[in-house]
Computed example of a mutant assay.
Amino acid sequence: MAHTWRLEDSVIIRDGLPQLDLLAGDGGAAARHQLTARVDARYGRWGLNAALNWRGPSRLRRDLGVDGPMDLRLSSLTTVGVKASTTLARTATPSATERRRTEGLRLEVEIENLFDARPMATLGDGSPAPGYGRNDQDPLGRTVRMTLSRRF
């Protein structure tokens, strides 16, 4: 589990130019908080992996140092991913050195973005941001992947 909390995030490109406050939205939309949690479990021939990613809201200013009506305000975003796996067929009990090679057929089912979360954005005046419709930024949404593999 990891939590990032930025108290200050600024950049000076060179002398004579103003300082960019990234948390306020100058030069990029940096979220003040980010959280990542992962769980990996295995029991016999079964395996489960889960991941949760969250980032707080952020702002991208159009004009340096000033909040305005054309700024882009990004909402917080939470995504969850889950992967379950199992070994379907095992050969006769192998020795410890052969186990990795002859373990059998492996089936994995993975779901990325389990709850189909999408990035949301509005302009500084509260109106919808162009290009941030349901299918504009992330046309894929939830992804389900099934993999069948065998080590040789």
Rank of each mutant, 00 (worst) to 15 (best):
R42C: 01
D67P: 01
V39I: 13
V39R: 02
W46P: 02
G27L: 00
A51G: 13
G47K: 07
Q34D: 13
G28T: 00
G28K: 02
G56T: 10
R62C: 01
G47D: 08
V66C: 04
V80W: 11
A31F: 14
D40M: 14
V80Q: 03
S75E: 08
A29Q: 02
D71F: 05
N49Q: 14
R59M: 11
V66L: 10
T36E: 13
A51I: 10
D26I: 00
S75F: 05
W54N: 04
R59T: 15
L60M: 09
S58M: 12
G27K: 00
A37P: 03
A37Y: 10
A29L: 01
A37N: 05
G56A: 13
A24T: 00
G44Y: 08
G65V: 00
A51F: 10
R55K: 09
T78R: 03
H33N: 15
G68R: 04
G28R: 03
L74C: 07
S76E: 15
R45A: 15
S58L: 09
A50H: 09
L77G: 06
L35I: 09
T78W: 06
D67N: 02
G47P: 10
G47S: 15
M70K: 07
D40F: 15
L60T: 05
N49G: 15
W54E: 07
A50Y: 14
L77P: 04
R61C: 07
R55T: 06
S58Q: 12
A31E: 02
L74M: 13
A29E: 02
A37I: 03
A29V: 03
L74Q: 08
R42I: 05
W54Y: 15
R42K: 05
G68E: 03
R45V: 11
A31D: 00
A24G: 05
G68C: 02
